[in-house]
């Protein structure tokens, strides 16, 4: 009897059980992502003096950021690159993902894993690979030189090279996101649309795209966020004329040690990417996307 009464205390409400399970992870993310992000927001209003943050409040960092033309150039360049890469990746990924999901048959698992796998090698080693192909002493240029031809100049330390590099790094995300969305899409709906007189392209825009729009948006976010914050690709593939905002940002935490200014740049970077994500999310109408509130 006594043990049974004691165990009655173990009868938690579903709400309590939910919180017991979800809170550790949520607190973890809050403590080590959201609080640090808030802390750099605070530091962005301070100033740095010989590698130390001094809590004197001012808007100086932002003034510097927005009045120095080079910073604005970096920001615009990063934004433009990110938008361009996302768009190209989007247009490229749709037919690829569609092909895998619809015609992949029993090979589609293999096909999709093969798209995702290269991502996991890590940024640096993947850039090593790209440099091996596209770099100044890479396969393409050395090949051209061996045949007495001039090197392709746009592959040598240009913004284009950096953009190709970013696309190389993150396109697996886009394809995978759209592919996973299409896996749950009932292709028979297309037949219904066609029987009711819709042409193929019409059926795509009226049925397929809206019902897979969330997956598409997720893919866009997964490509856009790292593309905008890129610092490594620009450094190793872009050269001096392709310096990205992220690259300059990381400088503030390296050689120059101007953490307050770096924090302000981080805040700007985060706000810009949040704003773009917000714009994308506004295009989502949960009810019309076939969202049921449950996975699967």
């Amino acid at each position: 009897m006594a043990t049974e009464i004691a165990s009655a205390r173990g009868q938690l409400s579903p709400e309590a059980r939910f919180l017991l399970l979800a809170l550790p992870g949520a607190l973890f993310v809050v403590t080590f992502l959201i609080l640090p992000m808030l802390s750099i927001l605070v530091f962005s209003f301070w100033r740095t003096e010989s590698y130390n943050l001094i809590p004197e409040w001012s808007l100086d960092n932002y003034v510097v950021l927005f009045t120095t033309p080079t910073y604005m150039t970096f920001l615009l360049r990063s934004l433009l690159t990110a938008v361009a890469v996302s768009m190209v990746a989007l247009i490229y990924s749709w037919p690829v993902a569609y092909f895998m999901a619809k015609y992949g048959g029993r090979y589609r698992l293999l096909l999709s894993l093969a798209v995702a796998a290269p991502f996991f090698t890590g940024v640096i080693l993947r850039i090593t690979g790209i440099q091996g192909i596209m770099g100044p002493v890479g396969l393409i240029n050395m090949g051209l030189m061996n045949f007495g031809l001039p090197p392709i100049s746009f592959l040598m330390y240009t913004p284009t090279a950096a953009a190709i590099g970013i696309a190389y790094l993150f396109i697996p995300f886009m394809v995978t996101a759209i592919y996973l969305s299409l896996l749950n899409f009932d292709f028979e709906l297309l037949e219904v649309a066609k029987i009711n007189g819709a042409k193929a392209w019409r059926a795509f825009f009226e049925v397929t795209l809206p019902l897979n729009w969330i997956g598409t948006i997720i893919g866009l976010v997964l490509v856009f966020v790292p593309a905008l914050g890129d610092s490594i690709t620009a450094r190793f593939l872009g050269g001096p004329n392709a310096a990205s905002f992220g690259q300059v940002l990381s400088l503030q935490f390296g050689e120059t040690g101007t953490w307050a200014l770096g924090s302000a740049m981080g805040v700007v970077l985060f706000l810009v990417s949040s704003f773009v994500i917000f714009l994308m999310w506004r295009s989502v109408n949960l009810r019309r996307s076939g969202f049921t509130g449950r996975e699967g």
């Binding site: 790292p226 890129d230 992220g246 935490f253 924090s263 985060f270």
Partner: peptide, 15 residues
């Protein structure tokens, strides 16, 4: 997912 690696790195460093 919405925060770039770089930002996770530097914000954790400063925090």
């Amino acid at each position: 997912l919405f925060v770039a690696d770089l930002l996770v790195g530097i914000s954790n460093l400063l925090f």
